[in-house]
Structure formats: structure tokens, C-alpha cells
Simulated assay, not measured.
Amino acid sequence: MNNPMKILFTLLAAAALLSCTAPAETAQELALRFNTPAAAWEETLPLGNGRIGMMPDGGIDKELIVLNDITMWSGSEDPEALNPEALTYLPKIRGLLLTGKNGEAQRMMYDHFRCGGLGSAFGNGKDAPYGCFQMLGDLHINYSYPQTEDAGNYARTLSLNDAVASTVFTKGETTFTREYISSHADDVLAVRVAADKKNSISFEVSLSRPERATVSVQENTL
């Protein structure tokens, strides 16, 4: 008869060997990557926490960060915007979409599933009573560098695993790194600017908005 203790020891040893040699599982890295600054708004990296957000373009000398706030609405309550019959068309629109009749669904939506009155005024909602969502403003950062060399090794990344965007490039022997986050826990937008050589960071910050805005500075607050 086999020795039970010997069999148990053999099984434990085999399990330990497998646990030592099995490769550790690693989470798949998901990211958007660019090797140039954004040339258009659609190429910027979106970050948000459900209430506030920003879209940095990763410019080297001049960086533009578009800021958003969910409460930035141009209009107000408009009684004419109410359309009680819209709800009755929702099941019909869904049914058309589920059967692949997208064109019919779109036409029905345009005809019946929309607000009354001027609504968003066909793209000019800021001047209509109902209004529309608008950007909060543009944050401009103009950088100055002691290095005279052109930028190289440029990388702009948005990590979909941890929702952190970054811009990294070199000038001469100096590596510059910027990181952008939108914190849900703290309800803030933050930009970290760093360099691996001392006395390499210098910039000016300004804020603007196309209309209906006044920018002021009080102590260290813009």
C-alpha cells in the first residue's frame, strides 16, 4: 500500500512547483497614443469625472486645454420646449433601430422626438431660450525653455486603465513630462509639469472664453 503521507507530500511539492513557474497574469494595457501634438480638437485627449473635464492638446511651446463644466448651459427654462408626444415615439424609434431601419428611425426622431419651440436653434442654441451646452473656457499655457534644441522623442498618451493623460518629450539632455488627471474623489482637474533637470520649467498661464466672460486674478488665483 502506498504511504499516504508520501503521496500528500508529492502533491504539495507539485503544486508549489506549478505556482512558482506559472506566469503571472497581467492586466492588458489600453491606451491611445500619438507622436505629435493635436492638430485638431478631435485629436485632444478627453478627461472628465462626470461633472468637469478637460482636453489638452499637448502643444510643446503653446498648450491649449479646453475646460468643461456640466452646469455651463446658455439658456433657461423654456415652456415651448416641452413635447409630451415625444415619449410615445421612443418605442417605435427603438424598434426601427433594432430591425436595422436606421434611416426611418432618424427621420422619425427628427419629426417627433425633439423639443418644441426653437430648441437648439439649428446650431445657434446659445441665442435661443432653451439654450445649449457650452465650453467653460480655454486654458493657455505658454512655455519657455532654457534649451535651444528642437523637441524630440515626443509621445502623447491617454491611459484607459487609470484615466491619466501624459505628454513626454526631450529637449537636448532634458526630458519634460506633463500629466493630466480629472479626479472624481476630489472633484478637481490637475496638471503636473515636471523635468528631470533643475531650472528647466518656466511658463505663463492665461484663461479665455469666446464670449460673456471676464477673467481676473486675485493673489494666486486666476
Results as ranks from 00 to 15, higher is better:
Tyr143Val: 04
Thr174Lys: 07
Phe176Gly: 02
Gln106Glu: 08
Asp111Leu: 04
Cys115Phe: 14
Gly172Tyr: 03
Glu80Phe: 00
Val168Gly: 09
Leu136Cys: 06
Ser74Asp: 01
Val66Asn: 12
Asp69Glu: 14
Tyr180Glu: 04
Met72Asp: 12
Asp150Cys: 07
Leu67His: 11
Ile60Asp: 03
Asp57Ala: 14
Asn153Val: 02
Gly119Ala: 02
Phe176Tyr: 15
Thr170Phe: 11
Gly172Phe: 06
Asn83Ile: 08
Arg156Asn: 11
Ile141Leu: 14
Gly116Trp: 13
Gly152Ile: 09
Asn161Gly: 05
Asp187Trp: 02
Leu139Lys: 00
Gly100Cys: 05
Lys171Thr: 01
Ser182Cys: 09
Tyr130Met: 07
Val188Ile: 12
Thr175Gln: 15
Ser183Asn: 10
Asp162Val: 02
Tyr154Pro: 06
Phe133Glu: 10
Pro146Met: 08
Gly117Met: 06
Asp57Phe: 14
Phe133Asn: 11
Ser182Met: 04
Leu160Lys: 12
Cys115Asp: 12
Thr157Ile: 07
Thr88Gly: 06
Pro56Met: 12
Asn68Phe: 08
Leu96Gly: 02
Glu149Gln: 09
Val164Tyr: 14
Glu104Arg: 13
Gln106Trp: 07
Ser74Glu: 07
Val164Arg: 08
Tyr130Ser: 10
Tyr154Lys: 05
Gly59Leu: 07
Gly125Met: 03
Arg94Met: 10
Met54Gln: 10
Asp187Asn: 15
Gly59Tyr: 11
Met54Ala: 11
Ser120Phe: 11
Trp73Ser: 00
Ile52Phe: 08
Lys62Cys: 04
Ala128Ile: 00
Glu80Val: 03
Lys62Phe: 06
Asp150Lys: 11
Arg156Val: 10
Asn83Gly: 13
Ala163Leu: 14
Met54Leu: 15
Lys101Trp: 06
Asp69Lys: 13
Gly117Trp: 02
Lys126Pro: 04
Phe176Met: 05
Glu85Asn: 08
Met108Ser: 04
Asn83His: 14
Leu98Ala: 09
